[in-house]
Each structure stands twice: as C-alpha cells, then as structure tokens.
Simulated scan of single mutants.
Amino acid sequence: MTSSSPAFTKTTQSRLRRLNLVMSLPPVVFASVVLLAVDVHTWWHLIVLAPGAVAALVAFERWTADDLARVARPCLIVAAVVWPLGVLLTGSPNAYWGFCAVGSLALRQVPRRRALAAAGIFAYVATVGATRLLVQQDDVRGVLISYVLVPTALTIAVTVLTVVGERFYDLIRELDHAREREAELAVIRERVRFASDLHDIQGHTLHVVKLKIALAQKLVLRDAEQAEKELRETYALVSDTITQTKELAYAQRRLNLSAEIENAKNLFEAAGIRVRVTREAEVGPRNSELLGQVLRETTTNILRHAQATQVQITLSESGIAIVNDGVRGDALPELKGLSVLRQRVAGEGGELTVEQQDGRFLTAASFPPFRADVPSGGQRKDDR
C-alpha cells in the first residue's frame, strides 16, 4: 500500500469518473429523453432515432471511465448514420444530438490536426442538415434555421464546452500529480535528514577512531600504558557509536516533540494536506521523546501510504492522537515501524492504538494518568 504513481493515478481517475457521472450524466440522459420525446411521432421513429441517443450515452459513460477509444469509432458511425436518417426520413431536426455528443468527446482521441477534425464535424452537421431541402423545398428559411444553423451552432457550443471541460480535468490531474511529487519529496527530505543524523553520529567518530589508532600505533612500543588507554577510549567510543546508530535506526534518539510537531505540519502542508494541531496540554520530557517518535513515524506513513487531504494532531496530557483521511481499502495495513514503537510504548507503561474506520486512520499513543508529567487543566490552544 504505497502512494506510487499507478495506484495514485488510478484512484484519482476513479474520483474524476464519479464526479463526471454525478455532475454530467443526468443532464445528458435528460436531454436525450426530451429530444426523443419531441421528435418521435410514431413507433418506427423511435427505432430510427434511439440508436443515436444510445451511442451518445455509451460514449459519455466510457469517456468518464477514460475508455472512450475502445467505443469511439462504432458510436461515431452509429450517430453519423442516425443524423441523415432523421433529416430525410423522420424529419427530426434534433437527430444530430448523438453525433454532436460523440463527435465532441471523440476529438480527444485525434492525435493531430484536432482543429481540422472539429471543422469536419461542424461541416458534416451543416451539410446533412441542408439535405432536408431535398424533401422540404417550400420552407427554405425554416430548414436553414432548424436543420442547419441551430444544430451547427449547438454542436460548436457543445464541442467548446467539452474541450474546456477536458482542460479542467487535465488541470486537476496535473495538480494531483504535483501533490504526489510533493509527498515523495517530503519522504525524501525525511530520508536526507536521517542520513544527516547518521553522518553526524558516525562521521566524526570514525575520524577520531582513525586518529586514536594511529596514535596508539606510535605509542605501543614507547608508552604501552598510554597506548592501552587510547585503545580503551577507542573501544568505548565505538561502543557508544554502535548504540547511537541502533537508536537512530529504531527512531530512539532524543527528539523534541514541539519540533517534531512543527516539522510534521510543514511536511503535510508541503504535500498539500490541511493540518490542524490542537494542544490540550503540554507533555513533559519523560514521554515527549517517545511521542515524538510516534508522530515522526506516523507522518512518514501518511505521506507514503495514504491519500490524505486533512490531518488532525491532538496533544493531550496523557499522549498524542493523529487522525488522517484518504485511507484506501478496509484491511488494516501492516506498518512495521509502528509495531516496533508499540512494543516500546508498552514497555514504558503506555499503549499505542492503531485503528482504521470509514476511510479514516487513527494512530494514538497514551500513558496512564500516573505517568503524566504535567498536571491536568492545561490551557487549550489551536495551531492552524
């Protein structure tokens, strides 16, 4: 469960699909029904005109699923046939609707010369509409208005709106990809900080060890006692470095909770996630370090594994709670970092809770009242 590009993009497209269906499909269905009701005067009119409306609905539904390429050509052919049949056989000035809808959507499938393809659609609608003059020569003005000008103008309008809509959804996709990249950068910055801490621990130590060993080599024959002292100090220094490295690897180095809260807030905001920090009380140094580790690990998990849009961090007298949305799936994910921290929190007499429900994820670490380092009744403060 990661925020890698394929899964992330797939979920975004699914949201856009639902948005398109909810916002646009009902008007399209309503328009198709109304136009059929206006133009159908007998049963065989329905047989002639219905395929055009069905082609428009199928094309639109597949467009919302980003799968229009598979059905664009057959839908366009069906709708293109219905328009002249409607003009010449049923006298239906609205039979262009299917071709108008499918054609405007299918333009996205044209890789080059899209403007020329759009001009072809408009010309086809106008030319076919003008053929009505073959069967209705007594009302040239009415034919030109009802079968040529109105259908062509509406086809142009629908095409323009469709192109604008496509640009809008392209912008949403670009913003979503930008948010994904920000989240990945936040994780990378966290890794860089870890590497910097590791360098601080080992870089200086290794340099000192090198100097002490070189000194011991010079003293081993002249001053064995001093050489032995240097080696003892080197051994102690290496042992201390090993301990610090283990602590760093398991996020056990001393942390400042306030600094971790500010860092988490900055990381979330950089990733486009709204964050709210509520301080109900201040936590003393005995528990703050461990709570800082919980917050750091949870922040990394949210950035890497969730599609959060908002995060709530609540700091209380007994512990910390972090709630985020954007959880995918119903199964509780396996988060090894939190599993290690659960053992440490339990070892200190506390409890680490991880829950997932209704698309929200809760991570909370708490300690019994007698473990609290700050008296109750702290002043409540919100940081936004």
Rank of each mutant, 00 (worst) to 15 (best):
I172D: 00
E166W: 03
R193E: 12
H199P: 01
A153D: 00
V150T: 00
V220L: 02
R189W: 07
A195K: 02
E225W: 05
D200K: 09
L154G: 00
V150K: 00
R167W: 05
D200P: 03
D176S: 04
L206Y: 04
L231D: 09
T241K: 05
D240Y: 06
L206F: 08
L219F: 15
E228F: 08
E230R: 07
D170R: 07
A157K: 05
V163E: 15
F194K: 03
L198G: 01
G165Y: 00
D197A: 09
R189N: 10
K210L: 14
A236H: 08
E180G: 06
A157P: 07
K218L: 12
L215P: 07
Y235D: 14
T241I: 08
I188R: 07
I213A: 14
E233R: 05
K210G: 15
V238M: 10
T234N: 03
L154Q: 07
I172M: 04
I156S: 10
F194A: 05
L231A: 14
R222I: 09
K210C: 12
I156Y: 10
R232H: 10
A195I: 09
I188E: 12
L221T: 14
E180L: 13
K229Q: 10
V238F: 11
H177G: 04
K210E: 15
R222V: 12
K212P: 02
D223H: 03
H204M: 09
I188V: 13
T243R: 15
T234K: 01
L237I: 00
Y169H: 09
I201F: 03
E230D: 08
V158F: 09
S196L: 06
T241E: 11
L198D: 06
R167S: 04
R179V: 02
L175C: 13
T159N: 08
T152L: 08
L231P: 04
V187C: 04
A224T: 12
E184H: 15
L219I: 12
E174R: 11
L231V: 15
D240S: 10
V148L: 00
E225Q: 14
E180H: 06
A236C: 01
Q226V: 10
I172V: 14
E228L: 08
T234D: 04
A183I: 01
L154I: 06
L161I: 14
A214N: 11
L154Y: 11
I156G: 11
T155V: 01
T155I: 00
E166I: 01
S146W: 11
A183S: 11
R173H: 09
E180P: 00
H177K: 05
E230K: 03
Q202N: 14
A183R: 13
I188P: 00
E180D: 02
A153Q: 01
G165T: 02
E180A: 08
L215D: 15
V148N: 01
E225N: 08
R189H: 10
L161S: 10
A224W: 13
E230H: 12
I242C: 06
G165L: 00
L211S: 05
L185A: 13
K218C: 07
R193I: 05
V160R: 07
T234L: 03
